[in-house]
Design a protein around this nucleic acid. Sequence first.
DNA 1: TAGATTGTTAATCGATTAACAATC
DNA 2: TAGATTGTTAATCGATTAACAATC
Lengths: 221, 221
Amino acid sequence: MKRVKVSNNVIRRLPRYLRRLDELTEEGVSRISSFELASQLGLTASQIRQDFSCFGEFGQQGYGYNVPALRAHLASVLGVDRGFTAVLIGVGNIGRALMDNFCFSDWGFRLTAAFDIDPRLIGTEFKGVPILGMENLEDYLAENKTDIAVLTVPKEAAVTVTERLTGHGIDAIWNFTNVELTGPTSDVIVENVHFSDSLLSLSYYVAERRDEATAKAEREK
Amino acid sequence: MKRVKVSNNVIRRLPRYLRRLDELTEEGVSRISSFELASQLGLTASQIRQDFSCFGEFGQQGYGYNVPALRAHLASVLGVDRGFTAVLIGVGNIGRALMDNFCFSDWGFRLTAAFDIDPRLIGTEFKGVPILGMENLEDYLAENKTDIAVLTVPKEAAVTVTERLTGHGIDAIWNFTNVELTGPTSDVIVENVHFSDSLLSLSYYVAERRDEATAKAEREK
DNA sequence: TAGATTGTTAATCGATTAACAATC
DNA sequence: TAGATTGTTAATCGATTAACAATC
């Protein structure tokens, strides 16, 4: 279906488009031009049309885009309708927060099981998802085709667990540990959620702004 | 101190450099060339030298970079030594997970207080951080200079709380709600941690790989 | 029909890569 | 000294922006 190699930058913008289109749907807006959408997202109309054109022709001259139709197209491009399955490894704070708050099904994912080493958790359910013992991981993956693993184990366990995951049909790892898995892990797609990277970028921008304010004050003295 | 406008791409790479340098320190490596660092991070040596040159001259011809010195320089560029202070708003799952697992002080931040509306939490402490009632937010900020707010409230409360935060000396919001704060919120720096964006990008890459595999199978048939 | 807005081609801009003189 | 590797300038590459014919 997808032919052309789409750039990373485009792919990273797609979820934002989807989110904005969902908000527009909530607001009852059913039609939008690239110009208007651009102004709402702080982008240019050109860029938006270029981005969409990677995946087909979703608009109509003189009219713009139909919001629900465009939403559906982009969702499909992102794979939301493919019924991907996921397991979560490590029912600690972050793992539980995800199971409790994050609506996997909103994005087309089915969380089929969670794994932990804590005997008090093993055998229980959380929000309908069974929590199994880590020792059953390989068996489970062999019996239940699973597309991605959500990695929410402690830092120390990250590498070992990753090794156990690869070669068992997992296509991708959604990595919440602060460990750099990207390099060595050969064939598996890794998507990192690095809290500290995010905070440090924020820190940079705050520091930069402070320096600018200081510099300005100096000049005006 | 910082003169030139540094591109976003560079800023986003800095935390990765820092992380890798920390790992090298742990491994006892005290010296590294741009070439070697590049290979470990999947970048080019040129790019790394270009990136660093935005902030000064940290290396030495014929030798490379001293790991601890470079680490210290980059940390300083990121503002790790500025003693920024933070409050956390919303001690739910994600909020508690951050307070429990995320080591703010590792990155130079001091978490001074948390806020919630749950009377069972108000007045208690979590890991030495006092949990105060939301009604005291403005007073607290007036009395305690605070640089950033960590926003971990439910989706519904995001906009209201953001409005209460702006105009009280907060420079930046670290936004964990899945709400797009970027557009309207005027003067405040917003750094988003959008789990769903991350998962959807991952989903795209998995879908793409599947399509490629299918296409390959078709051709070989 | 006239006005609006698309999809796409061409132009511009910025970021990455290559090359090399400087020098430890 | 000779070898290695930096910082930086120039060349290349890719992404964003502008422009416009096509057309709803």
